[in-house]
Design a protein around this nucleic acid. Sequence first.
DNA 1: CACCGGATTGTCT
DNA 2: GACAATCCGGTGA
Length: 224
Amino acid sequence: MSERMPRPSPGGDPSHLDGDAPLLEMGREFFARDAVELAPLLLGAVLSHETTAGRVAIRLSEVEAYRGVGEDPGSHAFRGRTPRTSVMFGEAAHLYAYFTYGMHTCINIVAGAEGGAAAVLLRGGVVVEGADLARERRGAASDRDLARGPARLASALGVPLAATGADLLAPPFGLRVPSMPLAYEAGPRTGISGAGGGAAFPWRFWIPGDPGVSTYRRHARSHD
DNA sequence: CACCGGATTGTCT
DNA sequence: GACAATCCGGTGA
């Protein structure tokens, strides 16, 4: 079952939680907070990437938080710094990209204080700009599937593995965050085997009912 | 929609 | 040498 965690609604009026809040460019300090606190604040944020081919922007529907050395068995940084994870140990709001399953690239936003090695994995979203270019990059795919899933999202955005370490607050990237947090739900992270998976780390966050939420829950399936 | 198997290579033990 | 923060296509309900 998904643990329901709606935001409190100050004043009792939930109308500001419907995703219409204006988007703001935030300073780096916004991203320097704890990853588990930051992750839900990124729901509804729009990440853009521009290349010579054009510009694609994606509104985030689903994210996962990962903490650092020794505190999160599901984190790539759990066992300490390695060449691959070194950017996780750097400044917040930079890109951490990794390659997995022999063919896919996934992307994270580095979170927390420098040295903390925390990050937020971008698991799914909706293309809000550059759908034609995203479709070219993804091959035949329904609009809904363009960026629904972490590897699909990275592919639609055209972010190569080599972009790891890039500053997401500077061109060719752009990142704008809702001025008001959206309502969200939380549950176990997807795809994590062993410790780090399951109910002990309910650090997957998504916008209920959003079309950009991935459906891959086979590995971390929970009852409803 | 749910389940299953295959693809394919960097990364760390 | 094992395994991975996955995706896709096929099959069946």
